[in-house]
Simulated assay, not measured.
Amino acid sequence: MAYQNLISEIKENILYITINREKALNALNKDTLTELADVIAFANKTEQVRGVILTGAGEKAFVAGADIKEFSGYNGEQGEDLAKRGQDLVFNAIENSSKPFIAAINGFALGGGLELAMACHMRIASDNAKLGLPEVTLGLIPGYGGTQRLTQLVGKGKAIEMITTATMVTASDAEKIGLVNDVVPQADLISKAEEILNVIKQRAPLAISAAIKSVIAAVNNGDGYLTEIKEFGKCFETADFKEGVTAFVEKRKANFTGK
């Protein structure tokens, strides 16, 4: 897959996506968001992809924010459309993906960058990373789901504090408040994400998708229990369920096929 602002490749069933605008600290402009929407759709429909690692080029930034120059002259209607399109095509598309997405946060994750990381199912941060939502310093609020996902991850009080003060937090503090799963040296960032996905790859793919869907329903749809019940029932119709039970009885490793 050839993109102008992204590098993407599949290795051992993991799709690696690197936002490749290092000189701009990997800021999200329209073209980058369009390419992200395309590669996310590709990940969802491609059986070869079992998980996704999303990171930024270089050692300074995951994504330092959105490209402010592009929307500095927008009116209210244009601003609302910007937020809706971004949420629908990129941020919500990641969160609602059936494939696990891990954000490998290799530096600054600010504004739209932190929103992108929070849309992923898991977040690993390098020990030099700094995270924050500084939109109020521009007279704005987060528009790509940041007010919602930050609240889900760290709670109402801490979310309001971070958003209204526009204060950045360090990687270690982000781990303490539940904003990231793990903090590692930058040299170990991708290998840590790979370690997690390599464990997930050993599990039943359809069950993984069902689990992600059920967890997301718990925070977004208000019908998490019902979603869990339905997805639990669907699992009984899969060949992977039969293989998993047979392998358990026979005391061998299951060979899941995603069917």
Rank of each mutant, 00 (worst) to 15 (best):
E12L: 03
E12N: 11
N13Y: 00
L15S: 02
A27Q: 07
L28C: 15
N29S: 12
D31F: 06
T32L: 06
L33F: 14
E35L: 03
A37D: 05
V39F: 08
A41C: 07
T46L: 07
T46A: 12
Q48R: 08
G51W: 01
L54K: 09
G56H: 10
G56P: 01
A57D: 07
E59C: 03
A61S: 14
F62H: 03
G65N: 11
A66E: 08
D67R: 05
D67V: 04
K69C: 01
S72V: 15
G79V: 14
G86T: 15
G86N: 07
D88E: 12
V90E: 04
A93F: 03
A93T: 12
A93V: 05
A93L: 07
I94C: 14
S97F: 07
K99M: 04
P100E: 09
F101M: 03
I102D: 05
I102H: 01
A104Y: 11
A104T: 04
I105W: 07
G107P: 07
F108D: 12
L110P: 02
L114A: 15
E115D: 14
A117S: 06
R123W: 06
A125P: 08
N128P: 01
A129F: 06
A129T: 11
A129I: 06
L131E: 03
G132N: 05
L133Q: 11
P134L: 09
E135F: 13
E135Y: 06
T137K: 15
L138D: 07
G139L: 12
P142H: 01
P142F: 00
G143Q: 11
G145H: 04
G146F: 05
Q148G: 00
Q148H: 10
Q148L: 03
L150T: 01
L153W: 10
L153C: 04
L153T: 08
L153Q: 13
K156T: 13
K156C: 10
I160E: 09
I163M: 15
T164I: 06
T165S: 06
A166H: 13
T170F: 02
T170C: 02
A171N: 12
I177S: 14
L179N: 03
L179G: 01
V184H: 12
V184N: 14
V184D: 11
A187S: 15
E194K: 10
I196D: 02
N198Y: 09
V199S: 02
I200E: 14
A204W: 03
L206G: 03
I208N: 09
S209K: 03
A210Q: 15
A211W: 08
I212D: 09
K213N: 04
A217M: 00
D223V: 08
D223Q: 15
T227N: 15
E228G: 13
I229M: 07
K234I: 00
E237W: 07
T238D: 01
F241H: 09
G244L: 00
F248P: 00
E250Q: 10
K251Q: 08
A254Y: 00
K259H: 13
